[in-house]
């Protein structure tokens, strides 16, 4: 067993809205090992971004984290004072987002923004020293001629370069955990491949852990060591990346796998999941996937399935997993 860096227990984040109580994150347990990558997969509205914001204590109003623990090396981040949390953000945990242009300030040079981020965590360093460190950070993310780029504005950079700058800023203070929320979704495939490659190299260099949030199973297969599949605010399957693809258990995971066209096989029709993700103020009773699940039985409509161990290190929240056994027993009866 690898050493654990971050442990999330029973995390619950809710929004009180006019349409009712929105349970964006509803009792999530996670674990991130040192130096490893945890992929969080799910479609829009499944709560994966809200989960990462809850970890960072950046949930926007009127949202509140009402229950659970976020343990970073044993320290519960939900209990510490705001000032200490500010040191954790950017210091121990850093974050990068999907659209680098909206995260960068268009009226300041790239260099100034990196220096600004560094100053928060090492206020005593001289301007010259900070500039030197910033250029080193740009070099570390393989930006060509970093001295020149230091004085450029975000609009002068390509999308891939901007994401590199964001990564440079995020890694400036050597965080132990990087949360990457759809970091390559806005990029072209060849640039996506460059950025994923870069993240892997940087992880090997620094030994940081990564939480990678994505909707793309290909990216998960490429990057993650462990995976948590989320649906409607809950984790429905949790295992190693290899087991997720070799031994997918939850019907939602199966639906996702069937929905992606594969380059290595020809199929006439894709195995689409019927319907759409339910709105978060109207989650169905029982298993939240039951209205879309082809295997749903009466029990699924009333009783919420807990995560349970089906194999070593493989947890599934489904009454009927593994499905082939459930079906065989049914037809025998």
């Amino acid at each position: 067993m690898q050493q654990e860096l971050l442990r999330v227990e029973g995390l619950r984040t809710v929004f009180q809205t006019s349409s009712g109580l929105v349970r964006a994150v509803d009792g999530v347990d996670l674990s991130v090992a040192r130096g490893r990558t945890l992929g969080i997969v799910g479609e829009s509205g499944c709560g994966k971004s809200m989960l990462s914001l809850s970890i960072m204590r950046l949930v926007p109003q009127p949202g509140r984290t009402v229950d659970g623990k976020v343990l970073l090396e044993g320290r519960n981040l939900l209990d510490i004072p705001t000032g200490d949390m500010r040191q954790v953000r950017g210091g121990q945990i850093a974050m990068i987002f999907q659209e680098p242009m909206t995260s960068l300030n268009p009226v300041h040079t790239v260099g100034r923004q990196i220096v600004e981020a560094m100053k928060v965590h090492s206020p005593k360093d001289s301007a010259a020293a900070l500039k030197e460190q910033a250029i080193a950070a740009l070099k570390r993310v393989r930006i060509p001629s970093p001295e020149r780029r230091f004085d450029e504005y975000p609009h002068q950079l390509s999308g891939g370069m901007r994401q590199r700058v964001m990564i440079a800023m995020a890694l400036a203070c050597r965080p132990r955990l990087l949360i990457a929320d759809e970091p390559t979704t806005a990029l072209d495939v060849t640039v996506q491949a460059q950025i994923l490659d870069l993240l892997r190299e940087l992880q090997a260099e620094t030994g940081m852990s990564i939480i990678l949030i994505t909707h793309d199973l290909g990216v998960v297969a490429e990057m993650a060591d462990d995976v948590a599949v989320m649906y409607a605010g809950k984790v429905v399957e949790r295992t190693s990346a290899r087991a997720l693809f070799e031994d997918p258990q939850h019907p939602y995971t199966l639906g996702l796998l069937g929905s992606v066209p594969r380059l290595d096989e020809d199929r006439d029709r894709l195995l689409a999941i019927e319907g759409a993700v339910p709105p978060p103020f109207a989650f169905p009773d029982g298993c939240r996937f039951n209205p879309r699940c082809p295997f749903a039985i009466a029990r699924c409509r009333t009783e919420m399935p807990p995560l349970r161990l089906v194999e070593d290190g493989h947890e599934v929240a489904c009454h009927r997993a593994p499905i082939e056994k459930a079906l065989a027993m049914e037809s025998a009866a």
Binding site: T190, Q194, L196
Partner: peptide, 25 residues
């Protein structure tokens, strides 16, 4: 070729098998 090889496959056993194309358009 570069475009095809850059697509991430939903298959972890192929991980890291390609060298991405350098540079930008």
């Amino acid at each position: 070729r570069a475009l095809l090889s850059a697509i991430p496959h939903p298959d972890p056993s192929r991980r890291g098998s390609v060298t991405p194309l350098g540079g930008d358009v």
